[in-house]
Design a protein around this nucleic acid. Structure first.
Length: 836
RNA sequence: GCCCGGGUGGCGAAAUCGGUAGACGCAAGGGACUUAAAAUCCCUCGGGGGCAACCCCAUGCCGGUUCGAGUCCGGCCCCGGGCACCA
């Protein structure tokens, strides 16, 4: 912060304040008249258009763009938007070019489902709901550049979503595959793995998902797994979110090995293990029930049992399969594999605790060293060899697997090696003998992006009936427009409603001109949100998805704020697309959101989730009607820490409205006294400067609740002073600091203070560090750890002097009881601790 | 079960480089103004004791380190969130 003389006008910009107020302030603070007036004025004067003034740094503040639902915004949503608005307004005053825009995440299942429920059409409901959201944001005084409004369901936008899909395809990152996929009966569509929560659909937490085999489009996010993991270290995100991404990616190092199936020449069981050092302890193998090898190797006498088990496992929903403390179950296939390390034949079982989707869908079972294998071996009476011993020479426990690291025993050439060395030795051996190699395995799977639903961006692909196969729609034919359909209900058969529109489906092959059919699935809504943050930089660009220069200027996002519920879906996909664009040379940064914060959830007053069905939703409209937007905004900020959850309490809004009324009264008195320059004393000056320092710091650190508290504290001080005692600097800097938080009231007061231009164009007040310095401080005197006195001393008083003062204190003497101090600790200007 | 957060007055919360616990506000009580009410303003407000000066107790519980612990360490309890056989 630069120094500035306290008495001079605040900055060279704007007019010299006139002594005569040009505005009459009403006696009572009345938000109902002030707020609409200024909202209209700001709009008329284009106050919040994005500026790119040279010589100023840029700041891009972004909230996760909302799906505009029919329920409208609640006061909970504003707990995200208001703080971001304050940051945007503050940064603008602090000399930044600010980009703050809003758009609608309008494609996707929620919009479609809601329209179906209301027996309406999303092309009608989406604009209507979005208009309502926009209205609510406007009456809340949020300063967005509405000329940059975007809508992911408009052809101008989804043209580029399709374009990005094609780019991924051309880079080998989009592919079609047949797979057994999660299906939600309520959504009537396929879900990505991330969208399955506790075996249920993420939107319908009471609807267990089931599996369906369908040919689908996938995005090869696994190709970026390592980079998505590594780059987490370079970004400033809440640690829990990073951790969730790390866990989701689930990197583990180990080896992939293969054992031949006895009696089936050429057939082998390939498997991944993180503990290759335990191979000598492998006494059986387990395949996932869905493993393709199962049908080939199962012996005649075991076939019936195996088939029964497989069909049962397939029928089980995920929720059953994951149910807690389930006993291990499995069936022997009758086949054996050769453990190439022990040269023994070991039985091959199938069991549902081995998942087809992870690793190779097969494991080597080392029951002595793995608890799950141990339980399985116990259950079926299989051998449990011990091949790792504790490092300290103690005996390993008998009643469980010894899973810790240690020293290899009963392990041929590994004997005596520490686990880490043994792992390396096995890898080397496996590579020499060509039976395996070191491998890294990931939990993350590719992103399934197809949806069998109407309300989404059509996937721009064509299937040639001739010889061309799958052909991407040429860029110049984009967008593939979503046809208007009256009846767009999902069929439930697994086919998209678009399949029922022959004019859409039937087309010609872009390559050979012969007959062809279009892909009828639509893109997952998360495709839209994987690049929208780029679009705000040049929202009307129609030749390319974004203007490179605009993106180079504005991106990456300086502050991204949204709910923690997007920890692994949206935030992972958006990061991946960004990296792909970086690789394609389209952008110059690898991470879209270097700084992320999660706003805390606002629960209803009853502690429950705000929902229409519970009838506990509080709307900003109602609060604004009752208390005004500025009071609502202040309470959103003051309620509690911005990133922590809290319960709604309407009484608080009444409190902040009362506060604004007191500010109003103070300014009105000051204006009424002729807005004097004043003659503030040192204390008043110091308080004014310290308030600027503290409030600035708190806003920078997103500590809005304490910023408001500091403002209230300062009001309590200033309100007791006569206008000339307060003086112009204290009053005007106060109103300026309040302006981002209570923009309407402050605009009104600013004009009344004699300024002809908007307060929101004014520079942020500066403080003089020299004037914030304290001359005296309170030093706490402790005797045996308890506070016994407080001393007012001059800053920097010598220890001897402080000690003498302390020892002279009656209360200190009393508690010393005549004893000599054994030890004295002095923390300069803070505390003197006497041990007797 | 494992991994993250978090437990401070009647309530929302401040204070975390170890140094005055409860700033700021809400609610409550008392008072002023008013014919009255609303609004506004003033006072009190963690618990206990004392006329007072002051004293004792108190940041989920138990222990530890320290001159000094809401803050650090160990063990537990409760609440919220995430993951859930990942080989």
């Amino acid at each position: 912060m630069e120094r500035s003389p306290s008495h001079a006008k605040l900055d060279g910009r704007g007019e010299e304040p006139t002594a005569q107020a040009t505005y009459e302030m009403d006696e009572r603070y009345d938000p109902k008249t002030i707020e609409p007036k200024w909202q209209q004025d700001w709009e008329r004067t284009n106050l919040y258009l994005t500026r790119e003034e040279p010589g100023r740094p840029k700041f891009y503040v972004l909230e996760m763009f909302p799906y505009p639902s029919g329920a409208g915004l609640s006061v909970g949503h504003l707990h995200n938007y208001v703080p971001c608005d304050v940051v945007g307004r503050y940064k603008r005053m602090a000399g930044f070019n600010v980009l703050h825009a809003m758009g609608w995440d309008a494609f996707g299942l929620p919009a479609e489902n809601e329209a179906l429920l209301k027996q309406s059409h999303p092309t009608e409901t989406v604009p209507r709901y979005a208009a309502n959201f926009k209205h609510q944001l406007k009456i809340s005084g949020c300063a967005y550049d509405w000329t940059r409004e975007i809508n992911s369901s408009s052809p101008e936008y989804y043209k580029w979503t399709q374009w990005f899909f094609l780019m991924l395809y051309k880079r080998g990152l989009a592919y079609r595959a047949l797979g057994s996929q999660w299906w939600c009966d309520q959504c009537r569509t396929i879900l990505a793995n991330e969208q399955v929560v506790n075996g249920c659909c993420w939107r319908h937490t009471n609807t267990p998902v089931s599996k369906k085999d369908l040919e689908q489009w996938y995005i090869r996010i696994t190709a970026y797994a390592d980079r998505l993991l590594e780059d987490l270290d370079s970004i400033d995100w809440p640690e829990p979110i990073k951790l969730m991404q790390r866990n989701w990616i689930g990197r583990s190092e180990g080896a992939e090995l293969a054992f031949p199936v006895t009696g089936h020449p050429g057939k082998e069981v390939r498997f991944f293990t993180t503990r290759p050092d335990t191979v000598f302890g492998v006494s059986f193998m387990v395949l996932a029930p869905e493993h393709p090898l199962v049908a080939e190797i199962t012996t005649a006498e075991n076939r019936a049992a195996v088939e029964r088990y497989v069909s049962e496992a397939r029928r089980q929903s995920e929720i059953e399969r994951m149910s807690t403390v389930k006993e291990k179950t499995g069936v022997f296939t009758g086949a054996y594999a050769r453990n190439l390390f022990t040269n023994k034949d070991i039985p091959i079982w199938i069991a549902d605790y081995v998942l087809m989707g992870y690793g190779t869908g097969a494991i080597m079972a080392a029951p002595g060293q793995d608890q799950r294998d141990y339980e399985f071996a116990r259950q079926y009476g299989l051998e449990i060899p011990r091949v790792t011993a504790p490092q300290d020479g103690s005996t390993p426990p008998d009643e469980r697997a010894f899973t810790e690291l240690g020293v290899a025993i009963n392990s041929g050439f590994l004997n005596g090696m520490k686990t880490a060395d043994a792992i390396k030795a096995v890898c080397r051996y496996a590579e020499d003998k060509k039976i395996g190699k070191p491998t890294i395995s990931y939990r993350i799977r590719d992103w399934l992006i197809s949806r069998q639903r109407y309300w989404g961006s059509p996937i721009p692909m064509i299937y040639c009936k001739g010889a061309c196969g799958i052909v991407p729609v040429p860029d110049e034919q984009l967008p593939v427009r979503l046809p208007t359909m009256k009846e767009y209900q999902p069929s439930g058969t697994g086919r998209s409603p678009l399949a029922n529109v022959p004019e859409f489906v039937n087309t010609t092959c872009p390559k050979c001109g012969g007959p062809a059919e279009r892909e009828t699935d639509t893109l997952d809504g998360f495709a839209c949100s994987s690049w929208y943050f780029l679009r705000f930089a040049s929202p009307h660009e129609d030749k390319v998805p974004f203007d490179r220069k605009a993106v180079d200027y504005w991106l990456p996002v300086d502050l991204y704020v949204g709910g923690a519920e997007h920890a692994v879906m949206h935030l992972l996909y958006a990061r991946m697309w960004t990296k792909v664009m970086y690789d394609a040379g389209m952008i110059g940064f690898k991470e879209p959101f270097p700084v992320l914060r999660n706003q805390g959830m606002v629960w209803a007053a009853d502690g429950q989730k705000m929902s229409k069905s519970k009838g506990n939703v509080v709307t900003p409209d109602a609060m604004i009607e009752k208390y005004g937007a500025d009071a609502l905004r202040l309470w959103e900020l003051f309620m509690g820490p911005f990133d922590e959850p809290t319960n709604w309490n309407e009484d608080g809004v009444a409190g902040t409205e009362r506060y604004l009324g007191r500010v109003w009264t103070m300014v009105r008195r000051y204006v009424g006294a002729g807005a004097p320059e004043g003659n503030p004393n040192a204390e008043t000056l110091k308080r004014a400067h310290k308030t600027i320092r503290t409030v600035t710091d708190h806003i920078e650190r997103l500590r809005f609740n304490t910023a408001v508290a500091t403002m209230m504290d300062q009001l309590n001080y200033l309100a007791r002073l006569k206008p000339e005692e307060a003086g112009r600097f204290a009053i005007e800097s106060y109103v300026l600091m309040l302006a981002p938080m209570a923009p309407h009231a402050c605009e009104e007061m600013w004009r009344a203070l004699g300024h002809g231009t908007s307060i929101h164009l004014e520079p942020w007040p500066r403080f003089d560090p020299e004037l914030t310095r304290e001359e005296t401080v309170t030093v706490v005197v402790q005797v045996n750890g308890k506070v016994r006195d407080r001393l007012e001393i001059a800053v920097g008083t010598a220890e001897d002097e402080v000690r003498a003062m302390a020892l002279a204190s009656e209360n200190v003497k009393k508690h010393l009881g005549g004893k000599e101090p054994r030890k004295v600790i002095y923390v300069p200007d803070k505390l003197l601790s006497i041990v007797a």
